[in-house]
Design a binder for these strands. Structure first.
Length: 258
DNA sequence: ATGGTCGTTGGACGA
């Protein structure tokens, strides 16, 4: 069984002890991280390798940054979309695994508010992501794409859909863009196992959101049909939000019978 | 309704 995890850690260095504890506790095969918030030279590579894991990472100073931490070494296929686009934000790392599937770790732009300049950037970025997928894979490939999508796929993924109606992360335009991206042939693996509302992966640090379960499900694990058919479980590690200095996101853990 | 909390920074900005 192969265990694949996505977790927006909101600073790898601030969260290092939690990451190490998670590796020891869950023993994931692939731990995909977002919002490293550090330049590559400040990535805690020795600490990760000290646990017996390998790390492929693509960071930048202060913001963004993605990584794949793995038991077996991986081959980096692409950073961002592998093109020469003058986008300095480090948001995607794609790796080829020894388990014969490709794995994409994404940190989709937040978008700030509907219609803002950052929102337009988010929408354009999602369009480029679709082109990236179509350029390199087909739905018959074994492909897993995970990350912080900054979009709640539908109203079940929102604690108060009326309050969030047409707000950032939930708007019709963003959901259509996500639908367009996943129409490539990607399956939301959590929904293969659980149709319930109120299953969240992120809660605002403010307003006692976690205690009130005022959250969103924006951290997602998608798979093409050949990979999704091997998915046996998906769970959200809510306990990771407890204790001192948690991230505002918790890990989403999927197992595949590979 | 408003503001509130983090992390990276070294005053705001991003989320």
């Amino acid at each position: 069984m192969v265990k694949v995890v996505t977790w927006n850690v909101n600073s790898i260095n601030t969260r290092l002890d939690r990451v190490k504890a998670f590796l020891a506790r869950e023993s994931p095969d692939y731990l995909c991280l977002q919002e490293l918030k550090c330049a590559d030279e400040k990535f805690p590579l020795e600490a990760i390798e000290g646990t017996g894991y390998h790390a492929a990472f693509f960071g930048q100073k202060a913001y963004n940054g993605v990584a794949v931490i793995s038991k077996e070494p991986v081959e980096i296929l692409f950073r961002n979309f592998g093109d020469q686009h003058p986008d300095e934000a480090s948001r995607v790392i794609t790796v080829r695994t020894k388990h014969k599937f490709d794995l994409i770790c994404v940190y989709v732009p937040n978008g700030q508010s509907i219609g803002s300049e950052k929102f337009l950037y988010k929408m354009d970025w999602l369009k480029r992501a679709k082109e990236f997928l179509n350029q390199h894979w087909t739905l018959s490939d074994r492909l897993i794409i995970v990350g912080d999508f900054n979009i709640a796929p539908d109203d079940r993924d929102v604690y108060d859909p009326l309050a969030w109606k047409e707000h950032i992360h939930c708007s019709t335009g963003e959901r259509a863009a996500l639908q367009d991206l996943t129409s490539f042939g990607l399956i939301d693996t959590l929904r293969m196992h659980d149709q319930s509302a109120g299953v969240f992966s992120w809660w605002d640090y403010r307003e006692l959101s976690f205690a009130r379960n005022k959250g969103l499900r924006i951290d997602l694990i998608y798979a093409t049909p050949p990979a999704a058919s091997l998915c046996r479980s998906v769970k959200i590690d809510r306990d990771e939000r407890r204790g001192e200095k948690p991230s505002d996101h918790v890990p989403v853990i999927a197992t595949f019978e590979i």
